[in-house]
């Protein structure tokens, strides 16, 4: 089942990026989002990829720092957007809301999720949540040097198979794995590499509710978003998400609408 569009409308996309996220991309630039838990070396990865070509500010209307940086790989221009460090995307905090909204509505060409190799299990939560929103994910398992020191071994082929998205091992502080990360980002952004992200298994009660809700959600989001994910958020009872979704997709959050239709 393929719910996503391959080529988002570039013009609208640019406008959304500019106005809602303060991200001014040049024509032809690939947008890469950088997500990860706090303290996993996300900034190190960011700095290593972009060098000095970065600029910082705030997310529009939010008191949360925002950093963007550019880099070129194989003659293709990339714009890396550093998302706030978060433990999840369930939007309990402003940071989570920003990260979620950017991945969801900013439609980055690829999203890197940086994980801490020394506590992979907890970090995987975020990766799985990102993968529910977008298939264009590159998982970067960072701090491999520390994991090696602690004698933690990670089976990367198996991890890649389990997740269904490209996985790169890195020790960004030592500059290890960054070339592989650039190459993978290039492949995913240009569409040369297609992923088939793992579909999360939910307990029976959740799955049943999702199935009931799915047909209507599908009609509502109309291939713009992953309907399964939207259904899950609605079942979550996340009101802030409703505001986001209506704001970005110009859907009317209009509670009177049914009555008007009835009146007609």
């Amino acid at each position: 089942m393929k719910w996503y569009q391959d080529t988002p409308c570039r013009e609208t996309h640019g406008r959304v990026l500019r106005e809602h996220f303060g991200v001014a991309a040049e024509a032809g630039q690939y947008i890469i989002a950088l997500a990860g838990n706090p303290n996993v070396g996300k900034s190190t990865v960011f700095n290593a990829l972009t060098g000095l070509r970065q600029h910082t500010g705030n997310w529009p209307g939010k008191t949360v720092d925002n950093a963007q940086g550019a880099f070129t790989y194989r003659k293709k221009p990339f714009l890396l957007v550093d998302l706030p460090g978060t433990y999840s995307l369930l939007a309990h905090t402003v940071e989570e809301e920003i990260a979620r909204d950017f991945i969801c509505f900013g439609e980055p060409d690829a999203t890197v999720v940086v994980l801490d190799a020394t506590c992979l299990e907890r970090n995987l939560n975020l990766a799985l949540q990102v993968m529910e929103i977008t298939p264009n994910v590159v998982v970067c398992v960072n701090l491999m040097d520390e994991a090696n020191k602690k004698k933690i071994a990670i089976d990367f082929p198996a991890l890649e198979k389990e997740l269904g998205v490209p996985v790169v091992a890195a020790a960004a502080r030592k500059g290890e794995g960054l070339d592989a990360l650039r190459e993978t980002l290039y492949q995913v952004s240009t569409g040369a590499r297609q992923s088939n992200p793992r579909r999360l298994t939910y307990s029976a009660a959740v799955e049943e509710a999702v199935q009931k809700l799915l047909p209507n959600v599908q009609r509502l989001v109309d291939h713009k978003l992953n309907p399964r994910w939207v259904a899950l958020r609605l079942l979550d009872g996340d009101k802030a998400f409703l505001e986001s979704i209506s704001r970005y997709l110009d859907l009317q959050l209009n509670w009177e609408a049914p009555q008007e239709v009835a009146a007609l």
């Binding site: 939560n125 799985l128 990670i154 999360l200």
Partner: peptide, 18 residues
């Protein structure tokens, strides 16, 4: 339930690869 299901998925993967 959704939150604990996501955690369960992560746990399952981690068990296999770490």
């Amino acid at each position: 339930a959704i939150v604990s299901d996501i955690y369960a998925n992560a746990e399952e993967i981690a068990r296999k690869v770490v």
